[in-house]
């Protein structure tokens, strides 16, 4: 996996988070962000950011980490 690609993904999630901090508490914001990622990110991008969050995740902001965690959990229909 190219570092550059991952760097971009990390930057993107953090940017999405920074623009969505106003939805109540961190958990609520994380849900909004996770929904955004589900709706707009390609399968491979989601997988990469999930892998990163699980293996290292240090560069993700706190809310981003919460959001990616939700992304990796199976959604109840």
């Amino acid at each position: 996996m190219s570092d550059q690609q991952l760097q971009h993904l990390i930057k993107m999630v953090n940017q999405i988070s920074a623009n969505n901090l106003h939805h109540g508490d961190a958990e609520q914001s994380a849900e909004v962000i996770a929904t955004h990622l589900r709706k707009f990110w390609a399968r491979s991008m989601k997988q990469k950011i999930i892998d990163y969050a699980e293996s290292d995740g240090l560069e993700l902001s706190t809310v981003s980490r919460l959001a990616v965690k939700r992304l990796s959990e199976p959604q109840e229909a």
Binding site: Q5, H8, W41, A42, M45
Partner: peptide
């Protein structure tokens, strides 16, 4: 049923080799 890549994501994926 999943969204695909956008242009900048395509470029990143191209450089990454996928």
């Amino acid at each position: 049923d999943e969204p695909g890549l956008r242009i900048p994501n395509m470029f990143d994926a191209a450089i990454a080799g996928s």
